[in-house]
Design a protein around this nucleic acid. Sequence first.
DNA 1: TTAAATTAACCGTCCAGACGGTACAGTTAG
DNA 2: CTAACTGTACCGTCTGGACGGTTAATTTAA
Lengths: 176, 176
Amino acid sequence: MSKREQILNAASQVIATKGANQLTLDAVAAEAGVSKGGLLYHFPNKDELIKGLNIHVITCFRNMIEAELESGIPYSQAYLQATIKTSADPDFLLVNSSLIAAVSNNSDFLNLWAEEYERFHQAWEQEGLSKEKSVVLRTLCDGLWFSSMFQLYPVANVDQQIVFDYMMKLLREELS
Amino acid sequence: MSKREQILNAASQVIATKGANQLTLDAVAAEAGVSKGGLLYHFPNKDELIKGLNIHVITCFRNMIEAELESGIPYSQAYLQATIKTSADPDFLLVNSSLIAAVSNNSDFLNLWAEEYERFHQAWEQEGLSKEKSVVLRTLCDGLWFSSMFQLYPVANVDQQIVFDYMMKLLREELS
DNA sequence: TTAAATTAACCGTCCAGACGGTACAGTTAG
DNA sequence: CTAACTGTACCGTCTGGACGGTTAATTTAA
């Protein structure tokens, strides 16, 4: 793992354990085992660090979808698979913390996600699903993310499986 | 509106417009038209302010559900109605910002929500819905909140209606 | 009845510490 | 020689919060 990646992981670790408001350059450098100077060598300022974190996570998610597509399944199913995999412990740490950092700092970081969502949307549209099904499916995916982010109830893992099965059922109905 | 409420609204306004990391006592006091001392009279420290914001919002949501129940509809439907109403512009501002403040500061604030969710759960269970339906419905509600929070795609309002209709359809199927 | 005491609600200033960021002189590995 | 760092020292600003007023209403005491 490159130092750069170590730093990004450290940043999300700090957010996850201490909260986004404790995301300081010193804390990230310490967590990553890097000096402050070294941190600032890779990310010239804090905003660039958060931006880098978001871009990294978005890229990971996109790659995950593309990896799923390799097996020849339709896009919508690949998206569901990637969502399930992502929202499962503990990989979700990165998504979680990058979104939190983005929304906490209220800069243009959420736009990065919005642009990616736009691409997701276009791919969904070409799938031939009914409007209702596609909106419901995407809202369910969002709901899984929400539940992974805030963890407001503990039995999430079992429930996630139920939701996933339901989504697959919806997909099969439609595509057959 | 009491000064206390003014302050809470100001806090969520600051979070919504400037981001959670700009939630400073000075900014809230200025937004509320109160001096810093006056703010600290009502909330002895910043944590108490955030806690107060979350309790306020949770109470509002609970009251909204209870208001819906007055008309004799079942609990699950009241919950859906309250969710739709809450996630519609611009009332969601309060929910949104209180959750963001809670997760940014990573203190025990999310526990307040978790406790409330626990109560929601118990009410859902007594509804006689199948496990699958109730999990799907609740995940859809979470998804609506997620989409209202992050607003990653713009056409949310139309889609929300579709999701709501779908949820009502699910409910009718089951309860009939 | 009225003066004094108390209290609630709020103002405005000040300060220690935290934080982002700079500067720069070394060090290590390839 | 260069890229990728380390380490230290430092600066200016921001921020939480302590603190000492102030004002007006209310209560108490004589």
